[in-house]
Amino acid sequence: MLVHWYPFGKKKLPESHRLLLQENFTFYKRLSDLKKSQFDHRVFKFLEKYQFIGNDIEVNEERKTLLAGYYVMLTFGMRKYLVDNFQRIIIHPQVYYSSQTEDYHKGEYNRMLKAVVFSWEDFLKGHHNNQDNVNLALHEFTHVLHWNALKSNEMSAIVFYDEFREMFEIFKNETKMNAIREKSYFREYAYENQFEFLSVILEHFFETPQTFKTELPDLFERTRKMINFDEKLLYQN
């Protein structure tokens, strides 16, 4: 109950923002009125806290609200959901070149700049196909939460970190990882390193939860506990 206890009252999103979520955000559509009001409050606080910067692209209310929606969905089970290890979101129209890595990216979490960066074209690909287990917003925001858990001593971060440590033990176990690989459920990028493994897992958790639970029930449950998520909210009513 304390996860969604707001002692100073819940903030109300402008109706235009609520309509954007209702028309464009599958997860939001299936929430109860009470859950929607909680979701609205968190989107409001997210938009209030973080700066949005467009690089050759307009930062309009639709883009800001949709990005906020994915972050709020990912953290909906956490009491402390707004973190301080990023301050801004940078949006590019398409794949962009990073002078820091000297490579092209679809998205990244840049710890030095305290920024989460997105190609809007690639964000939309994940947004419009919510069952292909590829979602740029979920992927990059998971990186944010991972790094936050490594540094923070707040309870939500501690729970996240404790569950991830158990996942990392799986990642280091060649026998267990080969068994997971043989199922061909996660794409190959999941096996690059521990960070990508976690981000890919969260993409699958939200996009194909029933398949995830069937294929890898123990890992599914560990993921659910890591973000303290109410499993009922994953499925269509």
Rank of each mutant, 00 (worst) to 15 (best):
Met1Gln: 14
Leu2Asn: 14
Val3Phe: 07
Arg18His: 06
Leu19Ala: 09
Leu34Glu: 03
Asp40Ser: 10
His41Trp: 12
Gln51Tyr: 09
Gly54Asn: 08
Ile57Asp: 07
Asn60Ser: 02
Lys64Tyr: 15
Thr65Pro: 05
Leu67Pro: 00
Tyr70Thr: 02
Phe76Asn: 04
Gly77Asp: 00
Lys106Asn: 07
Asn110Tyr: 11
Leu113Ser: 13
Leu113Thr: 12
Lys114Pro: 03
Val117Arg: 15
Ser119Ala: 11
Glu121Thr: 12
Glu121Phe: 10
Asp122Met: 14
Asp122Asn: 15
Phe123Lys: 01
His127Val: 07
Asn129Thr: 08
Asn135Trp: 05
Leu136Asp: 00
His143Gly: 10
Leu145Trp: 11
Lys151Ile: 06
Asn153Ala: 09
Asn153Arg: 14
Glu154Trp: 09
Ala157Gly: 10
Ile158His: 09
Val159Thr: 12
Ile170Pro: 05
Ile170His: 03
Phe171Val: 09
Thr175Pro: 00
Thr175Ser: 07
Lys183Gly: 08
Lys183Ile: 03
Ser184Glu: 15
Ser184Thr: 08
Arg187Ala: 07
Tyr191Gly: 07
Asn193Tyr: 13
Phe195Lys: 06
Val200Tyr: 04
Ile201Met: 14
His204Ser: 09
Phe205Pro: 04
Thr208Lys: 12
Pro209Ile: 03
Leu216Val: 15
Leu219Val: 06
Lys225Thr: 10
Ile227Leu: 02
Tyr235Glu: 04
